[in-house]
């Protein structure tokens, strides 16, 4: 099939950037979205042009590197998948596809479609950990965890930190990511000693990094490739208010 791609091109952090149109012919419906971009880049290189820079790594939906806003939706139209898991069979001949990077002050563009997501690392550094004694590994079932808590914690722990929640949020908020970590660590016994400090420090760091505030629109959870539920944000709110001694 033949497509028209409109892609955000930006030479570097200082460049203003612009949407550039590229026609691409003979795209196979069996290609993944990223393979389609690989084909475009090969063509650009042969034509002596600069290839489009985009983030990718595992290409199987677990690393959280790929990060494209496709026709206005982070990770494209397919629910609960990353960009690399999206295939061209979802498009038809003659389609125009707009491809943009995550848009947030906290995620500045490095080049073209690649953004700097260090801000997420800083939120993790502020409290996304537990303190545990070193030494030999403890027995797997030494500390009992209720099944329901373990399931909810595990569901939250599937967050791959891709940043789609921020990209989709009308407020540019990183609350779903932060809430996933709060839930993941706050529901298991190992996370209890630092539970209060964790939520205060992680929310404080989140706010300092110029992310917006959450308004409960639910855009984040709709695009999340791991389907992190909105209730994690409710849990973060509850923990935050409790830790603030309200």
């Amino acid at each position: 099939m033949n497509l028209t791609l409109r892609i955000w091109r930006q030479n570097g952090p200082g460049d203003k950037g612009r949407m550039v149109t590229y026609p691409l012919s003979d795209v196979s419906p069996d290609m993944s979205f990223l393979e389609m971009l690989d084909v475009l880049n090969e063509k650009l290189i042969l034509d002596g042009e600069e290839p489009v820079a985009f983030d990718h790594d595992c290409r199987e939906g677990i690393c959280g590197a790929c990060s494209l806003v496709i026709n206005g939706t982070p990770h494209g139209p397919q629910k609960a998948t990353t960009t690399c898991q999206l295939h061209m069979r979802h498009y038809k001949d003659g389609d125009t596809i707009d491809i943009e990077p995550w848009r947030a002050r906290a995620f500045p563009v490095i080049k073209d479609l690649v953004v700097d997501r260090t801000a997420f690392d800083k939120i993790i550094q502020a409290g996304g950990y537990i303190s545990a004694p070193t030494g030999s590994a403890p027995d797997a079932h030494a500390v009992p965890v209720p099944k329901a808590d373990a399931d909810a914690a595990f569901e939250a722990a599937t967050c791959i930190g891709c940043g789609a929640c921020v990209a989709a949020c009308p407020n540019g908020s990183g609350m779903l990511f932060t809430a996933a970590k709060i839930t993941h660590l706050g529901l298991v016994p190992q996370g209890q000693p630092e539970r209060d400090e964790r939520v205060l420090n992680m929310v404080h760091t989140h706010d300092e990094l110029d992310f917006g505030g959450c308004t409960n629109t639910g855009e984040c959870t709709a695009v999340c490739p791991k389907g992190i539920p909105l209730e994690t944000i409710g849990r973060l709110n509850r923990d935050f208010l409790k830790a603030s001694k309200v």
Binding site: N71, E100, V109, P170, N171, G212, G218, E219, V223
Partner: peptide, 18 residues
């Protein structure tokens, strides 16, 4: 704060769920 958090707007934007 929300306005400040996204200085460059999307060229193509559609509401997903809200």
């Amino acid at each position: 704060r929300a306005k400040r958090a996204r200085p460059v707007k999307y060229a193509h934007r559609k509401p997903v769920q809200g």
